[in-house]
Design a protein around this nucleic acid. Sequence first.
DNA 1: CCCTCACCCTATGTATACACAGTGTATACC
DNA 2: GGTATACACTGTGTATACATAGGGTGAGGG
Lengths: 226, 226
Amino acid sequence: MDQSLGQSRAITAGERAYQWTREAILSGRIPEGTFLEEKLVCDEAGVSRTPVREAFHRLAAEKFIDLLPRRGAQVRRVTAGELFETYEMRLLLELHGFRILCGKNIDIPAWLSEHLDRMEDPERVARVRAGDRDAIAEHAKMDFFFHFSFVKATGNSILIDLYTSLQPRHQRIAVSAVSLRPKRLEVIAPEHRTLLKALTDHDYDTAERTLRHHLRPDETVVSHLR
Amino acid sequence: MDQSLGQSRAITAGERAYQWTREAILSGRIPEGTFLEEKLVCDEAGVSRTPVREAFHRLAAEKFIDLLPRRGAQVRRVTAGELFETYEMRLLLELHGFRILCGKNIDIPAWLSEHLDRMEDPERVARVRAGDRDAIAEHAKMDFFFHFSFVKATGNSILIDLYTSLQPRHQRIAVSAVSLRPKRLEVIAPEHRTLLKALTDHDYDTAERTLRHHLRPDETVVSHLR
DNA sequence: CCCTCACCCTATGTATACACAGTGTATACC
DNA sequence: GGTATACACTGTGTATACATAGGGTGAGGG
């Protein structure tokens, strides 16, 4: 195609295909259960099938899609069972992060407060509550980023990997939760503030108590996924 | 890890390439740090480059190899730092499994005792102590399988996924540990028996104490990886 | 009206050809 | 003798052609 343009060759075609698809799934442009056709991604990402297929295998390993032999790539659904499991694992991994952060007196990034400011921006919140799909997907990503920051601060690369692998499932759950119960936003925001303060103060007990309440499956979402 | 199941299904070329490479790495036939050439796998697995490259991307996502752009696929090394992190994560995940198994009175598979019998088979142990690379790799796989069984028994599919993703790192560490300190075998075996009994008795405290001692990095291995 | 079966057609699985970057080596120069 | 540079070669990155399985659609029968 247009390889001859001499653009920054740093990004390979496979990487473009991967990022486009990953973003399309995370943003909700491609709904769960959709059979993702190679040709669609080829056209959208402007690459041939080979790098697209490589991206698909990577995305399958990362639980974004299921690769059904001779059927195609299906965007993964989150079942009710997986919802419970995801919260269970998030609690396990995040609490472990908290223990390290508090125990070793590791400081958490100062800009996290500004991140919460952006999440609570009235205009953004209004769009989310209005049901704007893009805004909801963006909110879910920011929520993940917030929690991920604590895990990242521990510096444990494997913990970071494990937690990262939860993102596809987190995204679906968070989108469902905010879509079905926009009122949750009013609960989430102050809990995030409490978490941040507790960790800044190295107050593990408060952090744990808050997180245990924060990571509780919403019955409305559960029944919706059943 | 399920090496013997499902021979009858129509296995794709990509799957053959994946399994051959995965097995070659786990068995130690391809040493860490090796640049894995696509052509080699093509010849060995009897497929063309396309499915091999797909397998490589999958293996990279699973942390078996690093894909260096324009350089190739390098079999991952385990650093000293990752050794500590791996033990830390194994402890976290396995203890969580133990809590569930004991708390919910879930029974663990009865055949695990026979699995330990096979691990302690004098002939096998002799080969491991003699430094037989295949026997050592096999021992490491059996060790992983033993610990994995507890995680599997919880039925939490995400926990199972997360633990599975530790296998590449576990394998390298276990092989190093047994190679450098064959004497460890005499410590490992009784600890495995203690763990199994504690879990059969739903005695979490003993299980936790034993596991905390069991999953302790060996200083010899640590300095070897540095 | 619903179910079944056969056909076609589309999308996947695989191989291969070509483009090009990175590495190694040999040669020339300092 | 050591270092720098140019060139060839090897192996990866990508596109594309071809084979084939699986599903959709239509007609025919119950």
